[in-house]
Design a protein around this nucleic acid. Structure first.
Lengths: 243, 243
DNA sequence: AAGACTAATGAGTAATGCTCAGCATGTCTA
DNA sequence: TAGACATGCTGAGCATTACTCATTAGTCTT
């Protein structure tokens, strides 16, 4: 049976896993609410229902605690990433899916993403952290899709892959910047369309020369497809701009 | 005449401007070398040849000191920006110049840029700071050049301007990320070429030259077909996996 | 030279990340 | 059921750090 300690706190002995889970839950909540620097270990301890010293039994430093919290978030995000991508066909669609997914994660948990982008990533040791490696896995999928596009002959053969990757993720980051800070809105759907279209046209192969009459047919075909889309699916806005 | 104070420090009275300059010089050096969090006010004071209390006569907080240091840097950078741009003709060239200039600034003073990007910008009050406004001025020049391209008929009429801006600066930021941390290299020239080309083709109007028009139409047809594929094959944008 | 103004000092404070010796609690043994 | 053991947990305490303020002392005016 448990009794109250001097201060009135109930001293409970939990298993390591339970206590760790409690602390991480508390840490995540307060980190997300106030940011890393403005969160004190005392606050986390209180929220977790323990005393400061207890944190340090399970996490060597406050920074380590943040890393563990972020890791848990990433693991969760990635769980069914690959599987979902399997179901998407075509370079444009696959590209669009990856970009949309990325934006959706940000849209779904801006506080957590702010923590990652603004607080964890700038640290000197970031590139040695497991979170960095998780992130690499993530961006490599995007590069793979670009390479598929090249292999299919849709994209130019010589593409600056790193630049394209940086363009996609850098754009996503800047675009969602205000939103991350609770100072604006953005639409993952619209942004994903715009980014995908820009990147796609930017990479597209040029120089095939069908006859001029083909162009007209293409437009009509495209219109037909759009009508089809309108019939069979919830509409997605199309940015590429009709001629 | 000056005499030595107890601790052996020479007590000198400088004018406000001289003292402020000394402190900012010292602060900039140590902030750049160690980063904001790892720099203590005591270190700055020592480097500036004063005592901690003196810092607080001129700068209300350590954070304010950083902001002033960054402001000074920005002012210096912008000094002949506009003038240089005047001398560059043509949309592609102007775009390339702005991107190249941006990358060159990063290349020229990575420590300072790291401070801005990784330490100052993530702060909650950043958007209220003068540095934010300086930065706006900076990115607006780029948008103006894009608009010029539209006006000249080189670019499509409907362009998601914000996205393009985010793409340029986001890409530059991600691309120079490792370099900022002293963990890699990059070439402002090569990167500027690659980014400019991608953006330029991504925005280019279709249909000016017949052959290009057809090529782009084919690309659009491919996109349309792929969208169809996406609709009939396992669905995109659904969590539940295959339909 | 005296007085006034204020730059500069340095001791001090509150807050915070982190440590550690020891206590108390759940479990195991007899 | 009672005692012993292993260890989860505590809370006082330490070192560091951003920041304050009463006091000291250059320098300028008259």
């Amino acid at each position: 049976m448990t009794v109250r300690a001097r201060g009135g706190r109930r001293r409970e002995r939990l298993s390591r896993d339970e206590r760790v889970a409690d602390i991480m839950r508390a840490a995540r909540a307060i980190f997300c609410e106030k940011g890393y620097a403005e969160t004190s270990t005392a606050q986390i301890a209180e929220e977790a229902g323990v005393v400061e010293g207890t944190l340090y039994r399970y996490f060597p430093t406050k920074r380590d605690l943040l890393i563990k919290v972020v890791e848990a978030f990433y693991e969760n995000i990635f769980a069914d990433y690959e599987r979902q991508l399997q179901g998407v066909r075509g370079t444009w669609n696959r590209l669009r899916f990856l970009i949309w997914k990325h934006l959706s994660v940000i849209h779904g948990d801006p506080a957590m993403c702010r923590l990652i982008v603004h607080e964890l990533r700038p640290w000197p040791q970031y590139r040695q952290s497991s979170v960095f490696r998780l992130n690499q896995r993530y961006t490599r999928r995007t590069l793979a899709v670009i390479k598929e596009g090249v292999a299919r002959g849709e994209f130019q053969a010589k593409i600056p892959l790193q630049i394209v990757r940086d363009m996609i993720f850098g754009c996503a980051e800047h675009h969602t910047w205000a939103y991350l800070r609770g100072e604006g809105q953005f639409s993952p759907d619209e942004a994903a369309d715009a980014i995908t279209n820009l990147i796609y046209q930017g990479l597209a192969r040029v120089g095939r020369r069908p006859e001029a009459s083909v162009a007209v047919s293409v437009v009509r075909l495209e219109q037909a497809v759009q009508r089809l889309e309108g019939l069979s699916a919830p509409r997605r806005r199309q940015r590429s701009g009709a001629a």
